[in-house]
Design a protein around this nucleic acid. Structure first.
Length: 315
DNA sequence: GTTTAATGGGTAT
DNA sequence: TACCCCTTAAACT
């Protein structure tokens, strides 16, 4: 499930659930037992996402570095409320890390990276990342940085789009869909992409990923995006401003009382889901919605690329 | 019951 | 390019 939007949403959810508290940290499966013991009962200062990397900073500069990889999942649930305490639900399956408070529990399974690191090690991870569309408008996240790399690589645009050192947070699904949305040939050399085209793609990614964070799912089709934007516009000025600035993830919910949260909380939390539908992703052999020709697929650098050979020719 | 695929990515060859 | 790691659920036999 994880592209950048998943991780940014997780950071927001974890901050709301555990930020400023001292969660119990354990490793029911046992593979993170030592790290869990070091973090248990420590103050969780903040949770942050950079591209697909998640960092939970505990007091004393103890940083829990998590990367979900392809199959990782971090479930955060509220199992009790302050007025109605409930027993903590037992872990199910291979839970490598569990955070638990009197009201919330978060279970991490299948992650590729689970490490306790120092601020210096965190910096080393961050310097290897390209600009993150979900941090657009902040230092170091300018699309020009990606353009500079593109100008001196021999690789195709589709390869470069998923390279985390060029762009942080974009995965295979957003890649396929954004290429189709702008009718760009995936195999076009990155250096041949016009800067104006790339800026349009970048702006679109800022929009798409932000909506992905807001709704907790990848939405790429125009009719669904229109509905999504309408729902966001109905959330009031604060959510709307944050969305327009491309930083819906960075809204700080801490300190808000329940009434305020009710007003600011996006509709998605009440569970409005869009049908899972895409322009090209996993539609190989089916008719392109625009031109009717068959959607094609090919393994590119180990991942399944999907595109429309007619709509995405030579651009 | 066994195999496969999944929105990742590092390391060896 | 190949192989490895992580875990689960759906699709096979």
């Amino acid at each position: 499930m994880p592209e950048g939007h998943t991780i940014h949403r997780l950071a927001l959810t974890l901050e709301r659930a555990f930020g400023g508290t001292r969660p119990e940290v354990s490793s029911p499966q046992g593979r993170f037992a030592d790290g869990a013991a070091l973090l248990d009962g420590r103050l969780l200062e903040r949770a942050e996402a950079w591209g697909k990397h998640l960092f939970l900073t505990f007091e004393g500069d103890r940083i829990l570095h998590i990367h979900l990889g392809l199959i990782g999942i971090f479930d955060v649930t509220q199992y009790a409320s302050p007025t109605s305490p409930q027993p903590l639900p037992p872990p199910v399956g291979a839970v490598r890390v569990r955070l638990a408070s009197a009201t919330h529990v978060a279970d991490l399974r299948g992650a590729m990276i689970v490490d306790l690191i120092t601020p210096e090690q965190q910096d080393a991870v961050l310097t290897r990342l390209g600009p993150d569309p979900l941090r657009a408008g902040t230092d170091g996240n300018e699309p020009e940085r990606a353009l500079a790399v593109m100008a001196r690589t021999g690789r195709t645009f589709a390869e470069v789009l998923m390279d985390q050192s060029v762009l942080a947070g974009v995965g295979n699904l957003y890649r396929c869909e954004v290429l189709f949305r702008h009718r760009v040939d995936p195999f076009r050399p990155a250096k041949q992409i016009r800067p104006q085209t790339f800026h349009t793609v970048w702006d679109d990614l800022v929009d798409l990923l932000s909506i992905g964070v807001a709704f907790g799912q990848i939405i790429t089709m125009d009719d669904q995006l229109d509905q999504a934007r309408e729902i966001i516009a109905g959330q009031g000025e604060q959510a709307s401003d944050a969305y327009r600035s491309g930083r819906l993830t960075l809204v700080d919910w801490r300190g808000a009382d329940e009434a305020e949260l009710g007003q600011r909380r996006p509709a998605y939390e009440e569970g409005s889901a869009f049908p899972r539908e895409f322009y090209v992703y996993q539609r190989d052999g089916q008719a392109c919605y625009t031109c009717g020709s068959r959607i094609r697929t090919q393994v590119l650098a180990g991942r399944n690329l999907f595109w429309c050979g007619r709509c995405q020719r030579r651009r």
